[in-house]
Amino acid sequence: MRGAYLPNIAVIESIREETPSEKTFTLRLLDGATISCIPGQFIMLSVFGRGEAPFCVGTAGQDMPGLDITVRCYPEGQVTAGLHSLQPGAYVGLRGPFGNGFDVDALHGKDILFVAGGIGLVPIRPLIHYVLAERNRFGQLTLLYGFRQPSEMLYRDELAAWRARDDFDVQLTIDEPHPDWEGPVGVVTTLFPDLQIKASNTKAIIVGPPVMYPFVVAECRKKGITDEDMIFSLERYMKCGIGKCGHCAIKHKYVCTDGPVFTYAEMREMAEP
């Protein structure tokens, strides 16, 4: 095994523009190397000369020749802006995967309520792929996906395919009215009141900006979903991915190694003063 800090080299095979600020990069490892990951894990991606940053795995599976990541560009961000300036054929570094990922076994037989805010759909997408690939092992499926405006909708083709299915209830909402939008308007929690779910059999998978979390928790509780059945993926500034740099620690947990997936019951214990 290579040292934990030494990346493998990967090449950018293709780039898809999702939104004005988000692109999906398909990466392939060199020399026939493979990567195995589960939904909810993340990799550390290097743009050499710019730095390294964590990104959720956009595709999951065993012994894959590479994987997808979807990256939001921060114009002044070292890695994200550096990556967005690269073309197919460029080389990057890849370490991982790291983190616990979603406990997919615990979801079998359950109804699943996916709640995504903005770029929070990124880690949820490979989990949806997994669930749809074994659709009959799961109960009722719902996705509530909120984003700011129509141009910020990720994975348009996939969303259209999911919406076309009659065994997957997909509801989209944008934050504020927009001339190009005919669907619901309002933050993602406005979709909750009309939701018909069996709380006792439901697992909620919730990923979005931190400001969204208290509101979603309140709505889930109103529906009767327990804190143990609310599952989040957390983000923290990260510098190593292996529990050493200290940056991602919350209380006595490390988001990179103990997480990034935590139940709300665990998160309550991690509340800092």
């Binding site: 050499f48 000369g49 730095g51 390294e52 510098k239 190593c240 050493k244 740099c245 200290g246 940056h247």
Partner: peptide, 10 residues
């Protein structure tokens, strides 16, 4: 204390 940050320099 054991915390560190990481940067690239050319």
């Amino acid at each position: 204390c054991s915390c560190f940050y990481v940067i690239d320099q050319t």
